[in-house]
Simulated scan of single mutants.
Amino acid sequence: MGLNVMQRLETLRRQAYVIRLTIAQLLVALVGSLLAWAAVDKGSAGSVALGALVAFLPQAFFVYRMAIFQQRASASRNALRLFRAEAGKFGLTVALFAIVLSTVPPSNPTFFFSAYVAVVLTHWLAPWLMPRELRN
């Protein structure tokens, strides 16, 4: 296989991973919100939604800054992108926590933090969601 074909396959694999991870995280957030609403009340469902949003937005920023959907550049450029994207993701996470906890405190902090952790840890399940031909 030529280098361009291999780069294209790697780009497709990354795209499939990110798309499936995003879908899985949104499903975790939706199921968590529905369970909280059914078990407790609307306020708890809102807490789950806020926690999921605080987890999801920094990851979307990371994907955007890393240019996941583009073909790879040089190793040094990718390393610089990685550090900048991770620093931005961390800063955005801290800022979102500060904004949410100071302006719109969740009605149920347990649901808020549980949803945050569940959405962040969803990436562990994403490899199982990949089609066999795109794994490795």
Rank of each mutant, 00 (worst) to 15 (best):
M1R: 08
G2W: 04
L3K: 09
M6C: 07
L9K: 09
R14L: 10
A16F: 07
I19W: 12
L21R: 06
T22D: 07
T22R: 02
A24F: 01
L26C: 11
L26A: 10
L27Q: 05
L30A: 14
V31N: 11
G32L: 01
S33I: 10
L34A: 15
A38T: 13
A38H: 14
V40Y: 08
G43E: 00
V48K: 00
G51L: 09
L53W: 09
L53Y: 06
A55G: 05
F56L: 08
L57W: 04
P58D: 00
Q59F: 13
F61P: 02
Y64Q: 12
Y64D: 06
A67N: 10
F69L: 11
Q70C: 11
S74C: 04
R77F: 08
E86P: 05
A87L: 13
G88E: 01
F90S: 12
V94D: 05
A95I: 10
L96R: 05
L96N: 03
F97R: 04
F97A: 05
A98L: 14
L101D: 05
P106V: 06
N108G: 13
N108W: 10
N108R: 12
P109W: 01
P109K: 06
F112N: 01
F113C: 03
F113Q: 02
S114P: 03
A115L: 07
V117E: 11
V119N: 00
V120F: 11
L121E: 10
L121H: 08
P127S: 04
W128V: 05
M130T: 05
R132E: 15
E133K: 14
E133W: 15
N136Y: 15
